[in-house]
Amino acid sequence: MTDGEFKRIVLPQYRQMYATAFAILRDSDEASDAVQDSISALWQKHTQMKPPDNAQNFCNRTIRNHCIDRLRKNSKQYFERIDTLYQFSAESNADSEVSLNSTSAFIMKCLMGLNKRHREVLTLSIFSQLSNDEISTATGESPENVRVILSRGRKTIKEYLKNEQKFRNK
């Protein structure tokens, strides 16, 4: 790929890449850094690559893999960020950044009640919408473990929600 092709095909995808990075990392600065690092890495190797057939899919896949690598190396900051972002919302604080309906707040409370390992897996699934394989890469858990944790966690949350609704109705 020539310099001109790179600037014409890859660079314009930066907005979509930022949106994908933000959806996963849930922080503006982190997402900007991820996009810069990804595009810089692509630029370094662009002479060895052919122009992609579908630039959007290619860039999307690149930024997703980069974000998952960042999560794998530095997951503590990510989970602290999620906890801080939604903890106030779960406690129905009017000054919180995000205001949630009662069910969303209830889901947050359910997640807070889980052990650390289960909470991390479910958080990545709910908040960053990662696939099972991506969660496995980010957390270091085996794909089978991830599947079991997600299955149990989702059924548990549904049961809690049903019980909470019954309690309210009473």
Partner: peptide, 26 residues
């Protein structure tokens, strides 16, 4: 109820604003 509530927890990508200086940095 569960799914529509979980949708709130995930931001809509269509309304997301890209930082102005991102392209300059790139």
């Amino acid at each position: 109820k569960l799914f529509l509530s979980m949708r709130e927890l995930h931001p809509l990508q269509t309304n997301l604003e890209t930082p102005d200086d991102l392209l300059v940095k790139i």
